[in-house]
Amino acid sequence: MKRLSIVCIAAALAACSNTPVPTDQAKEVSGTQLLTTAYSKAAEDTGRVIIKRDAGQMGSLCNLYVFVDGKPLAKLYPEEKVTVHLAPGRHILSADPRGACPGGMSEQTADIVKGSTQVFRGSFTSAGDFNLLPTAF
């Protein structure tokens, strides 16, 4: 009976976890969700950063606000992404879940190289933690 309870709890928690969305399947934000267009244009001397949000129910009732170097960039819903073009050098990427959701702000350093692309994903774990991490997905 104890094992059955543990299996049921694990299955319930797994159902709440999120899954990565392939970058080419995530919807690019636009309109009022894009809080600035300062980083929208590609230039010969920039690198590209894509920040995307996972699919899933965990955290689905909140908005994910994304920042570059402390400046508001975009508001993401599940399965959405924002693409920015940044000058070479070190930048701080921040993602802050706001609303009826668990977790708090997560930040990552991005070392931008001319012509490169880096991809980050915002994800809620089944324990309710929020992370912004580099991803290969």
Rank of each mutant, 00 (worst) to 15 (best):
P102Q: 06
Q57F: 14
D69R: 09
G99W: 11
I51G: 01
G89Q: 08
Q33S: 06
T37D: 10
S60K: 10
P22R: 07
K27S: 11
G31R: 15
C16N: 13
A95C: 03
R98Q: 13
S60E: 14
E44P: 00
A15K: 02
A95Q: 00
S17C: 10
P20K: 09
V66I: 14
P102F: 09
G47H: 05
V68G: 07
G99T: 15
K27H: 10
G59E: 06
A26L: 02
A38Y: 12
N63H: 10
S40K: 08
M58L: 10
H85P: 00
Y65M: 13
L86E: 11
R48V: 05
I51E: 03
T23S: 02
A74Y: 03
T19S: 13
E80P: 00
Q33F: 13
A55I: 08
L76C: 02
A38F: 12
V21H: 02
P22E: 11
E79K: 12
T46K: 10
C16R: 05
D24C: 06
A15R: 08
P22Y: 07
E79F: 00
Y77R: 07
I51M: 11
C62D: 07
I50K: 04
K41M: 09
L73A: 09
R53M: 04
E28R: 13
G59M: 05
G89I: 08
L86V: 12
D96K: 08
G99A: 03
G47M: 10
A55W: 07
K41L: 05
A87Q: 13
G56S: 05
P20Y: 02
E79G: 00
L64S: 00
N63V: 15
G99H: 04
T83A: 01
L73V: 06
E80Q: 14
D24E: 14
S60P: 00
C16K: 13
C16S: 06
E44I: 02
A42Y: 01
K81L: 00
E44N: 09
T19E: 14
E28K: 04
K71T: 15
E79M: 05
K71Y: 13
L64W: 05
